[in-house]
Amino acid sequence: MELRGYRLPMASSLLVWFALWEVIGRLELVSLIPPFTEVLRAFAEVVPTEDFVEAATITLQAFLIGMALSFAVGIGLGIAMGRNRAIGSLMGMWVNIFESSPLTAVVPALMALLGFGLPTMIVTVFVFSVWVIALDTQVGVERVNPSLIEMGRSFGASRRVLFTRIVLLAALPELLAGIRLGLIRGMKGVVIGQLLIAVVGVGYLFELYSRNFLMPEFWALLIVLFTFAFLASEAVAYFERKVSFYASSR
């Protein structure tokens, strides 16, 4: 945002929105929207509570374990699909179907299978995020300039060395895009999973707040989640920008 030629930091445009929110809240037009200061008060109140810390811990735990699995399987699968035509055509169709299907529908089945605890949440994060990571990795690996590979071979690189020093690095832009999208999907997965389970983590808190009509608390929790999602994806985007010059030189 610019004001009379001065570049203002992004936070300043947020301030405008928060002010607007405050006004609407104070007008008491919609009971769903409390004043922003109320939300801040709830935020300060809720965050230190044991309930919140517990919910945050279990959510983060499910998210991190699920994402770790997704990275390992998604990147591995993507590489296999990109390097091996047979695997690519064998798996490609399924990965595409899962990538674009409304996976929320499988969460109840997972609950029936794995119960109402951590395993269900982990698997939910996994099935939400793994496909896009696999697909983007595949695209990255397939787009590696063939003459870079020939260059490596001409200097006697083994398959493993070719892979670690050339293919993986050359595929980095797509790989990072996949990781960023995967993180966002995984975040959706963990929240949706918990909402459906409704007895654990932030899902439980959302349920609790909305049932008791604690709107400031509800919004405070949403802000925590938004901020976390935003920071995580911005962190990856930062690395993506660092490698964006790749595209111009291939």
């Binding site: 300039n145 003459s147 870079l148 020939e150 260059m151 490596g152 001409s154 200097f155 006697g156 690189a157 060395v161 020093r165 050339i166 690095l169 050359a170 980095l172 490698v243 010059f245 790749y246 111009s248 030189s249 291939r250």
Partner: peptide
């Protein structure tokens, strides 16, 4: 040693590292 029409340089590596890459692989 091969010199490629499209140069086949690694975009993530400096000129020096690119020039040394044949030796690095060996």
């Amino acid at each position: 040693a091969f010199v490629f029409q499209d140069f086949a340089l690694m975009p993530w590596a400096t000129v020096l590292r690119n020039a040394a890459f044949g030796l690095e692989l060996r």
